[in-house]
Design a protein around this nucleic acid. Structure first.
Ligand SMILES: [Zn+2]
Length: 274
DNA sequence: AGGAGCACCTGAGTGC
DNA sequence: TGCACTCAGGTGCTCC
């Protein structure tokens, strides 16, 4: 489900319900996500704490607490965060429930349990940047064609793998890597060593455009993505290549191709992308 | 360095 | 109705 746009949509949707509120209680299931849910630390640092901000880094959400502690959440493939009245019936695969004032709850649900929840104490959060190895944020000023060309120097991999490398750019997953390369007019298998600065500038520009447009659309709801209020996004209506193998290109009517690159389904227009 | 293959999970879809 | 198989928005491991 969630790449950068979906995570950002969730962040924005949660802010009015969660920031400034105190967490009255925390309840978790005993099933493990990618790692075990840190039940003890949730009790120690989240329960009774007040959330002062929700930040995003790549596909990670960071909940900051008044105490200086932090909770880091990654949604994996099927993770959801939603706001519900405490009276709403629990859903299958709800794994953590944060009770808020006025009978509301923040619930973490994850069918496949590829998600991740980490709690950092104030000392840990202050002394250790958990994102120090992560690449730059594609919506920040530092993300430019020059940055991409510099990071690509000496590497040979396909441009799609490079864009999905979170140590290069944070937050781009399979859907958006495919879409960005379509709009940039570059075939996904192109080795990065051969790209000129002008083409890298195009990649940077289209990355920003695609991600911002997807956020404005409320994300892509391919099968089950919903925002924190349970509503679907509609960027899937604007997808040019992702999931469209065998269909006609929406720009030139050529047949959209599919190949596996880096173990992931890759879609492209053989005519619009060179 | 980075590719291939696999692992972690559940569920939807397809073909027989 | 069941079974076998493929695929899915992510990450991280081992082996070459
Ligand atoms: Zn085309």
């Amino acid at each position: 489900m969630p790449e950068l746009p979906e995570v950002e949509v969730i962040r924005q949707g949660l802010i009015p319900h969660v920031v400034g509120r105190q967490i009255v209680a925390v309840a978790c299931s005993s099933k493990k996500l990618r790692l075990a849910i840190p039940q003890k630390d949730l009790g120690r640092w989240l329960k009774g704490g007040r959330i002062t901000a929700i930040q995003r880094r790549g596909k990670y959400l960071i909940f900051l607490l008044e105490s200086g502690a932090a909770m880091i959440v990654h949604l994996g493939m099927t993770g959801r965060l939603g706001i519900f009245p405490a009276t709403a019936p629990p859903a299958l695969h709800d794994h953590v429930v944060f009770s808020l004032p006025e009978g509301m709850q923040l619930r973490y649900n994850d069918i496949r349990r590829f998600g991740l929840i980490r709690v950092l104490s104030p000392d840990q959060y202050r002394e250790h940047d958990p994102f120090r190895d992560m690449g730059c944020e594609p919506l920040e000023q530092e993300f430019t064609g020059v940055y991409l060309k510099k990071m690509a120097a000496g590497r040979l991999q396909p441009v799609k793998n490079f864009l999905m490398d979170n140590q290069v750019v944070a937050g781009i997953g399979n859907i958006y890597a495919n879409e960005i390369l379509f709009h940039a007019g570059i075939l996904p298998a192109t080795p990065i060593g051969s790209l000129t600065l002008a083409r890298w500038e195009k990649v940077a520009e289209k990355t920003r455009e695609v991600l911002l447009r997807a956020i404005a659309c409320g994300g892509s709801s391919i099968s089950d993505f919903v925002n924190s209020s349970g509503q679907k996004g509609y960027f899937q209506l604007e997808l040019m290549v992702y999931g469209r193998a065998g269909e006609a290109c929406r720009q030139c009517a050529a047949t959209i191709g599919r190949q596996v690159i880096g173990g992931r389904s890759t879609f492209f227009c053989p005519n619009c992308q060179k």
